[in-house]
Structure formats: C-alpha cells, structure tokens
C-alpha cells in the first residue's frame, strides 16, 4: 500500500508544483542578494543569510531557514490534509476500503507518503539553493567555515552538520503531518483540513510571542523549529535539538493516534 501511495504522490502534478513554489522564495532572495550585494547584518534576518554573500555554499542552510517557518509547514499541511479527505473528494476512499485496504494500513501509508513528500521538498530546496549559492553568491573559503560560535569548522564537519540539519527539519515536520492527517480524517474537505492545520501553526506562533504563555511554550509545536542553528555551534548544543525532536514525536504519537481512533470506526458515507 505504501508503494501505491508513493505512486499517487509522485504522479500528481500538485506535488511538483508545490515543490517548485517552495523554491521560489529562496531563489528570489538569492537573486536579490546577488544583484544588490546587500546582506542582513549578522545576527538579524533568517539564520546564515548574512554569511552567504561571502560563502555561497551556506545558502542551502539559509534557504531552509527561509522556508521553515511558513512555506514548508503550509505545504505539509496541504499534502497531509489531502490524505483522507482528498480520497473522499475524488470518490476513491470507498473503493480503496472495499478492495479491501485496511484502514490502519491506509493511514500508515498516507503518513509515510507525507513524510516522503517532506524529504523530497527539503532535498529539492537544498539542491536548488546549493546550485544558486554556487552560481550567484560568494565563493570565498574552501578551507573551512566560521561556526555560529566563532570557531572554524572543517569542510567535513560542515557537511556532516548540514546533513543533521536536514534530518532535523524533516523531523520537525512530523507534528504538522500528524495534525493534518488527523484533521483529514475529521472532515470531507481537504482544504478545510489544511486550513485547520495552518490555524494550529499560527496559534502556536502567536503563543510563542506571549509572555503569559510561558508555561506551555516548551510544548508548542513550533517552539524548537529553528533549533537546527544550534547544530552549527562549537561544540553542538544538543539541548533544544533533542527537545525539538521529542516534541515532534509527542505530537506524532498523539495525533496519529487520534487519527486512527477517529478513522477506525468512522462511517464512510461518501
């Protein structure tokens, strides 16, 4: 069933259009930086963006920082929200279930296909940003990179940590994927499920900016998203990264469980 879901994901024009759109903003940023040569001052703006004018190979990380807060989760919400509700809308859910495909297998396959989408999207952003960084932006040091903490990282360390950062970003989307999947079992409208998920994201972001919400902040889904920057400190500061992964796994367990609880006995009337 996972294979079938992957075929569906990959044959859908929407998947590729979404990935293309995800790359649009980093590309625009790269072009603007290359033309104007005006980077943000260090410590302001998206992470790593101030450094890319000197070292273009850092641009994949900057691009991730650009898409992570909004574009990537919105894309995940759209793809995840479509999981079950989209099958309802194309009148195909009932035909899958009477094949029969067990409801549990279907949910698992849907979740896997959303995660595969995240991996594809993140990889695409990284590759496109790397090429842009190389072509348009600074081509300074091949010897090593200055870490966020000020010391120098070797090229090998850099590659390793960049890999970790990408894994972290993929994991950071698990919560969004699980929530979108849950909403997708609640409603017959794929758009409704996506908007509901985006609503949760916005709420999480708003609460993060509110002092009165200090007590619940550690549990907010978006709290640790940008913690991937900590991977580039010397030595790596694991605290927030680990908390971030644990938070995502918590969301995954709760909402994937809720999706199953709701879908297992749901009357499929459409």
């Amino acid at each position: 069933m996972i294979r079938v879901e992957l075929v569906k994901l990959l044959t859908r024009p929407r998947t590729w259009i979404t990935i293309l759109a995800l790359n649009a903003l980093p590309t625009l940023v790269a072009v603007l930086l290359a033309v104007t040569d005006l980077g943000p001052r260090p410590g302001t703006g998206p992470p790593f963006l101030s450094a890319v004018l000197t070292d273009g190979t850092l641009f994949p990380l900057a691009a991730l920082g650009i898409v992570l807060p909004l574009f990537l989760p919105v894309a995940v919400a759209v793809v995840g929200g479509d999981a079950i509700a989209g099958e309802v809308q194309s009148d195909t859910l009932r035909y899958l279930l009477v094949r029969p495909v067990s409801r549990l297998r279907l949910l698992v396959a849907k979740l896997v296909s959303v995660v595969v989408f995240v991996v594809l999207a993140v990889l695409a952003v990284a590759v496109v940003a790397y090429v842009e960084g190389r072509l348009l932006l600074g081509d300074a040091p091949a010897t090593g990179v200055v870490s966020v903490s000020g010391s120098t990282l070797t090229q090998a360390e850099m590659t390793q940590r960049t890999g970790l950062a990408f894994v972290y970003v993929v994991l950071a989307m698990l919560g969004v994927a699980a929530i979108a999947l849950f909403f997708s079992t609640l409603t017959d409208s794929a758009v409704g499920a996506a908007l509901g998920t985006i609503g949760v994201l916005v709420a999480s972001t708003v609460l993060l900016g509110l002092d009165a919400a200090d007590a619940i902040k550690p549990y907010l889904m978006t709290r640790h998203w940008l913690a991937f920057v900590d991977l580039f400190r010397d030595p790596i500061r694991w605290g927030d990264v680990v908390d971030g992964v644990l938070t995502q796994l918590g969301y995954l367990v709760v909402f994937a469980g809720a999706a199953w609880a709701n879908f297992a006995t749901k009357d499929v009337n459409r």
Binding site: V7, R12, D91, T92, V98, R99
Partner: peptide
C-alpha cells in the same frame, strides 16, 4: 476480495488515465 462493488457512482483519480487508475487499484 470475492466481492466486486460499485457504490453510489464511480471514483477515480482524475489526473490519471483509466488504465492507470485500474493498475493502481489492482496493485493495492
């Protein structure tokens, strides 16, 4: 697996061909 069903109208993925839809369903 021993029952063929058509329930309240057909369902198919609109962007795929009829053949691709059947192939996909068969491979579930």
């Amino acid at each position: 697996p021993r029952v063929g069903a058509l329930v309240e109208g057909p369902g198919a993925y609109p962007h795929l061909s009829g053949r691709a839809n059947l192939t996909l369903l068969d491979s579930t």
